[in-house]
Every structure is written in structure tokens, then in C-alpha cells.
Design a protein around this nucleic acid. Structure first.
Lengths: 213, 213
DNA sequence: CATCTTTTGAGAGTTACTTTCACTTGACTG
DNA sequence: CAGTCAAGTGAAAGTAACTCTCAAAAGATG
């Protein structure tokens, strides 16, 4: 994520390819990060988004307010930050280069969502709820999506020999992510009932058919 | 626009169909509104968006800060508010009902843009500049667009006998507006060179072709 | 253990926005 | 045209998200 700048690694002597065995410092940071997020989700579910202040979050997570801002640039980011971008990118780059781009995206989005649903369904639902209810979250989410868009555009451009800045590529991604966003919103507005993945596939079908309503 | 709640009309006795001849009160409000916007645009072009405070805007427009907030809900809205939604809606409802929806949108967007460019080109350019440079503006713009989306969805749904909440309709509009947004961003990022309308048409061609990259 | 570097907390400051209330100023009525 | 009513305005105080600075605390390192 954008807020997670690459920090220096301990120059450990572990075998190459093995994940470096995080020093105490890094482990602590991770714990703090998680504590803040957890506290935030809990407080929000109890009191609502607006009523939950950074001060409360800091207190609940047992850190100072300044620390909260050190870990997350904005209040919205506490809720929205995840690590799915690199995963989606990797998956996309793993698809056969001659697969139609829309099919590649269809595939990786289904996969990412399935994984998310399997491991953190409750969080996804709360997030969706907030996306529907809180304009600030919705807005920030859109920004986040445009980071995702850049990553995906690069991957797609690479494999087709185009520039990642190619207008057509950008429009392609924007349309797909715009549709995805709308489906999620729709799902959230309708009580989160029905199968999200099926609905996404329907939306992609609409796009694939050339938007002939 | 969302921020412009319908205010009471003077029950004037003018001929039906004639625009009511705004009382002094309404005229003054309009002037204030314009003064605030003008001051804002000027200050921003001189100092940049972040460096321009509401207080400065208020002073330049010769009103109090509270009045500024009475006219515009947020700082971003001062820049973004326009009155094109009802126009686009009317135009859309004027298109033949059997015209393919994508063509209708293509047509009305070209028309709206042409009008905007003809009468307020400088404003459009400044707005685009801000959209590229200021995340808050970009975010708010997206929200604004989703208001537009609702209006257009209703119009489109009406003529095809669908519900305005129909997933397919919503996806359709989201994709088109998402593409439009991306083109505008692209145009802005590339020095605002080239013909916006042509680029929009290209983007719509991409959508129409089923997003086969 | 001593030193160096990173992380943290405390505190003060900025600014967008909200709310309240008294005052002014158009608009309508008799 | 005077009086009343409603709408619009300004002043002021308050809230909360974010920023900046600096000194203290705590992990890493030799």
C-alpha cells in the first residue's frame, strides 16, 4: 500500500529466498499496526465511524495519537489498508500472456475475493458496510483503487508490449474497476445478500458484451 | 447539484413558462455564490489549493467564513459545483428511446463538453489541473460523478422500462463514467493537449468493442 | 556495556467544518 | 407605508483530523 513505505531490512544472514526472520523491532511494529486496526474496527462497530475519534483509537490500542498517524496517513486508511495489490499483481503476471485481458482479470478478481472471503469475511463485510454508509470511506476507497489500477495496468501493459500509460489500457482498467466498485456498492446496499462473485461475473459479462443494454 | 437544495420561489405572477424574475434576495444570493467561486479560483491559481484557506476566500469575497460554508458544504465543492447534471439529464431524455444507450451517452457527453468548453474553457482547465494535482478534489469529484450517475441511470432506466437500481444499468453507467474520468485524468496529466472529445470517443469505442484490448 | 539509530509520546499549532445565537435585511400584509 | 415575519448573515466558541518539533525511551550493533 501507498502508506507502507519500504523500510530497511535487517541485513540478516539467513538463506537467500527465506523470509528474513524479523527482528524484535519489526515484530513490535506489526503488532502495533494490528492493534490499531483491531481497536478501530471494534470501536467503529460499537459506536459508528464518525463517533470514533483517533484519540479513542489510540487509547484502545495503547499508543499515543501521534503513533496512530505514524502508522496510517488518514483515519480512513486504518480501515482500508490491505495487502492485496501485490498478490493480485503476481496472479495477473502468472496468467498466460495470450489470455484475453478481461478473462485474466475475471480470474484473478475471483481468486482474490475468494481468498478474502475465506480468511476475513467479517472484515470484508464491515468494510463494505462502511463503504456504503460513509462518504469519506467511499472516496478514499476510490483513490486506493486507482493505485491498484496502476499496478494492474503495468502488468497488463508489460505483457502486451504497450505502455502502461496507454490510454486504452487505462480506460480498460478504469472500466473494470469502476464496474467492480459499483457491484460492491450494490451488494452492500442490498444487505450483502447473494453471491458477490457471481454478481461480479455478471458485470464483467456486461462489459464484455460491449455495454449493449 | 447535491449542495443546491431547492429553495422557495417567489410566487410571482409572471407568465407560465417564463423564468420567475428572481427577487432581490435571490439575485443577491447568486452574486454571493459567484463572488465566492471567483475569489476561490483566483486565490488558488495564485497560491495553490492547500495554501488557500476558507478565511482568505471569505475575506476576498467579502463575506464571513460561516457564509462560505452556508453556500458550499466543503472547500472542494467551491471548485467543483456546477449545474450540468440537469442539463445532461434533459438532453438524455430528449434522445430517441430506441437509440443504443452508449450512443446516447456519447452524444450528450460530447454536447455538454462542447458547451462547457465554449463558455468556460479556462475553468474546465483549472478544474482538470486540480483534479490531477489535489487528491481531495479527485476524491470529491468521484462522489459528484456518482450523483450524476444516479441521474443518468434513472433516465436510462425510465426509457428501457428497467429499474434505476438494476445492476446492469448501474454497471453500465459506472463503466462509462469511470472511463470518462480516466480520459480526463489522462488529458490533464499530458498537459491538456489534444482534443478531449476525440479522446472520449476513443474510450467509448473501446467500451463498445467489449474491452478487447 | 556503550553508542548509534529508530521509534515513541507529549505538546502546541493549523484548518476545515459545526453549532448557536443575536442581528440585519428583504419580502409580504393590512 | 409601517409593521411583522422569514430568511440570510456574522461573531464566536467548539470539535477533530492532521502536522511539526523535540526530547525521552528502547532496539540494534560492535
Amino acid at each position: 500500500m501507498a502508506t507502507m513505505a519500504a523500510t530497511s531490512r535487517p541485513p540478516s544472514v539467513s538463506a537467500p529466498g527465506t523470509p528474513p526472520p524479523l527482528g524484535l523491532r519489526e515484530r513490535k511494529k506489526l503488532r502495533t499496526r494490528i492493534a490499531i486496526r483491531r481497536a478501530t474496527y471494534r470501536l467503529i462497530s460499537e459506536q459508528g465511524y464518525d463517533a470514533t475519534t483517533i484519540e479513542q483509537i489510540a487509547e484502545a490500542a495503547e499508543v499515543s495519537p501521534s503513533t496512530v498517524f505514524r502508522y496510517f496517513a488518514t483515519k480512513e486508511d486504518i480501515v482500508l489498508t490491505d495487502e492485496y495489490d501485490p498478490i493480485m499483481e503476481a496472479e495477473l503476471r502468472n496468467r498466460p500472456a495470450d489470455e484475453p485481458p478481461l478473462e485474466s482479470l475475471r480470474f484473478i478478481m475471483a481468486k482474490a475475493l475468494t481468498a478474502f472471503l475465506a480468511s476475513e469475511e467479517e472484515e470484508l463485510r464491515q468494510r463494505t458496510r462502511l463503504m456504503v454508509e460513509v462518504p469519506a470511506i467511499r472516496a478514499r476507497m476510490t483513490e486506493t483503487m486507482s493505485d491498484t489500477a496502476k499496478v494492474l495496468a503495468r502488468a497488463l501493459a508489460d505483457r502486451s508490449g504497450r505502455s502502461p500509460d496507454d490510454l486504452e489500457v487505462r480506460v480498460f482498467i478504469a472500466a473494470v474497476l469502476g464496474a467492480l466498485r459499483e457491484v460492491t456498492l450494490y451488494w452492500g446496499e442490498h444487505g450483502q445478500e447473494g453471491d458477490l462473485i457471481t454478481m461480479i461475473n455478471q458485470a464483467l459479462d456486461t462489459l464484455e458484451g460491449g455495454l449493449k443494454l
